[in-house]
Simulated scan of single mutants.
Amino acid sequence: MKSYSLIDAVGIVHTFDKVPQRIVSLVPSQTELLVDLGLESKIVGITKFCIHPKHLKNTKCIVGGTKKVNYDKIKALKSDVIICNKEENTLEIVENLRAVCAVWVTDIVTIEDNFKMIEDFGKLLDCNIEAKLLISGLSFALSDFKQFIERKPIRKVVYFIWKNPYMVAGSDNFINELLKLNRFENIFENQPRYPEMQLQQINEAADLNFMFLSSEPYPFKQKDILEMKALVNQPGIILVDGEMFSWYGSHLLKAFAYFKELHLKL
């Protein structure tokens, strides 16, 4: 096979003499995507947060988390490419790992970015047919969901991702993209990324319909709802599955079904 060159999401040109056969993935949703593209046998290293499919933790080397990795473990795996993400992994990790092997970085903010990532994986890892089939399936599911959602009312929401301090989803992230897709108007969309906030701001928000408490990265529970209800004048406090709002890749197929169920409960 001839050598080939591809450009990742942060503009780095990568040239490969052969298709990578040993992959380390440092992003849970991208690990799941690699498996769904038929590449499980090529994955040699994952993070402790790579929980889908469940059996991977027993068959692959766990090299740390998304923000802290064991460099010695990764070096010992003799990988051909390390898959990272601009948001999930720190710049320090990415730069340090470039001394080990090629580091392919993704950057997912929109659904279009997600399709581009899958297409790029198809080219990078020689699974074009699988990538095209997945994109086709996702495109159909997206079109179906848009028909489902088009007559739903717009609802104002706030999406919590963290506690102590309280942090919420702002703009320029995949969570906000999926909120918009669901016709949820994010009251913090005018703020960048993941701003800190005070609960008193909830009482000052006009016509807020729902407070969403995500299951990740902070694992909000029923007790948090009770705690918040004592502090804010907002009855619509709901626990939501954080994976469905923040995992990209093939996980979107599960998310569309989840979103339909969520709307039926609201």
Rank of each mutant, 00 (worst) to 15 (best):
K2Y: 06
S3R: 07
A9Y: 08
V13R: 12
T15E: 15
K18P: 00
P20T: 10
Q21H: 03
Q21Y: 01
I23D: 03
V24D: 00
Q30T: 04
T31D: 06
L34P: 07
D36K: 14
D36T: 07
L37P: 10
L39Q: 06
K42H: 10
K48E: 11
I51A: 12
K57D: 00
G65Q: 08
K67R: 05
K68N: 11
V69R: 06
D72T: 12
A76W: 00
K78V: 08
S79C: 14
D80F: 00
V81D: 03
C84K: 04
K86H: 13
E88K: 14
T90N: 01
L91G: 01
E92I: 08
I93C: 08
V94P: 02
R98E: 15
W104S: 13
V105D: 04
D107L: 11
I111M: 09
F115S: 09
E119V: 02
F121I: 08
K123W: 04
N128G: 13
L133K: 15
L134Y: 06
L134S: 05
S136L: 07
L138C: 05
D144G: 01
F145Q: 00
I149W: 12
R151C: 07
K152S: 02
K156C: 08
P165L: 12
Y166Q: 13
Y166G: 13
G170Q: 14
N176G: 07
N176E: 15
N182L: 11
F184Y: 10
N186D: 06
I187A: 06
F188N: 04
E189M: 05
N190A: 12
M197V: 15
Q198K: 15
Q200N: 13
I202V: 15
I202K: 04
D207K: 13
M211S: 03
F212H: 07
S214E: 02
E216V: 10
E227N: 14
A230W: 00
L231A: 12
N233P: 02
N233S: 13
G236C: 03
I237N: 09
E243R: 13
G249R: 12
S250Q: 09
L252G: 01
K260H: 05
E261I: 06
E261R: 14
L262N: 03
H263T: 07
